[in-house]
């Protein structure tokens, strides 16, 4: 295996936050602080070309970790190395070798047409003109940028803006791409398009991708490997398959029936957990029945107009890991 491009060893970040005690005046004067261990000694390595999902509940330490990997934040302890560089000491050199997309913020110029933002970034990263044209042509095609290349960024939809941001983050051919909630707030079609693009740049360009997300479907589509963080600790680092088999075993089939049927539906290898008129939620276990078998069973008895399968939420998985424990940490 190649040398890892990202190495974190016992990485720590401790924030000091003011403690409120007593009245406002007392808080102003005393300024007592309390240490909050946002990231509390986590270690991992990522090899070139890997695509890793980094998941955890809100406030688990995901963003703090990413900020330390980019050099925005100085770790309070431990060591980190990205692309052979020390992120905080060589932040600006590293900046040329990473692409970063924050799902909730754009790096594009609000007032300017998308194409002008991309042109400006060409100068920021000193991308040779020929390479810029080459990349832009490729991205226009895969991301479908043409329809809004001349539109000011403030007028773009969230999905369009995200596509623009992805192109912007990759113009300078960074070998490493960090994505913080890249599909947040997007509809199914837009999510699909972004996932396809990420798979392609990972496959064609060998870009190493580390992405944080709340959406287990992102992980299921994109990442063979996932790391789960909670309260600053790494709960799990290993294959997505293993975690799904163990903890993500219960999925839900949501069906819209053609005619109303008495609730609950019977004679199915699944349990109806919710009903809302024609819409029914059927929970089933991966080990007992496949989604295809269940769909076949339902449609044999009832008319189905529409259906979706809901993957377990990351919060559910983390909760189950706590309840049931985990034997295969850092396998």
């Amino acid at each position: 295996m190649d040398d890892p491009v990202i190495v974190a060893e016992r990485l720590e970040k401790t924030y000091r936050v003011p403690v409120k005690k007593g009245g406002a005046l007392k808080t102003l004067v005393s300024r007592g602080t309390q240490a909050v261990h946002a990231v509390d000694g986590i270690s991992f390595t990522i090899a070139p070309g890997e695509m890793v999902g980094y998941v955890g509940p809100n406030g688990a330490g995901k963003s703090t970790t990413i900020k330390m990997l980019t050099g925005i934040l100085v770790p309070s302890g431990g060591q980190v190395r990205v692309a052979g560089l020390d992120p905080t000491r060589q932040r600006r050199t590293l900046a040329a070798r990473i692409g970063v997309v924050f799902g909730q913020r754009t790096q594009l110029w609000w007032d300017l047409p998308l194409i002008e933002s991309l042109e400006l970034l060409r100068y920021v990263y000193r991308v040779p003109e020929a390479r810029f044209t080459e990349n832009l042509t490729a991205f226009r095609d895969v991301l479908g940028l043409d329809e809004f290349l001349q539109t000011p960024v403030r007028q773009l939809s969230l999905g369009q803006r995200m596509r623009g941001d992805l192109a912007a983050a990759l113009l300078h051919d960074p070998p490493i791409l960090y994505l913080d909630e890249p599909t947040i707030g997007l509809d199914v079609v837009a999510k699909g398009r972004i996932r396809e693009f990420l798979l392609e740049i990972n496959r064609e360009r060998g870009v190493t991708v580390l992405l944080t997300t709340h959406d287990m479907a992102d992980i299921a589509h994109l990442c063979p490997r996932m790391m789960i963080i909670d309260h600053g600790h790494l709960l799990y680092d290993g294959s997505v398959e293993a975690i799904r088999d163990r903890f993500g075993t219960e999925r839900t089939l949501v069906v819209d029936l053609e005619t109303d049927e008495p609730s609950p539906l019977t004679g199915l290898p699944a349990e109806e957990i919710r009903a809302d008129g024609l819409r029914r939620w059927l929970r089933f276990r991966r080990a007992e029945v496949t989604a295809a078998e269940l769909i076949a069973a339902v449609s044999a008895r009832y008319g189905i107009r529409d259906l979706t399968i809901e993957e377990p939420e990351i919060e559910d998985i983390v909760r189950r890991i706590y309840q049931e424990g985990i034997g295969t940490r850092n396998e």
Partner: peptide, 14 residues
């Protein structure tokens, strides 16, 4: 802004 920072020891390996 890339000067050595006290809290960040240099990795000895590379």
């Amino acid at each position: 802004n890339e000067k050595a920072s006290k809290s960040m020891p240099v990795m000895p390996k590379q």
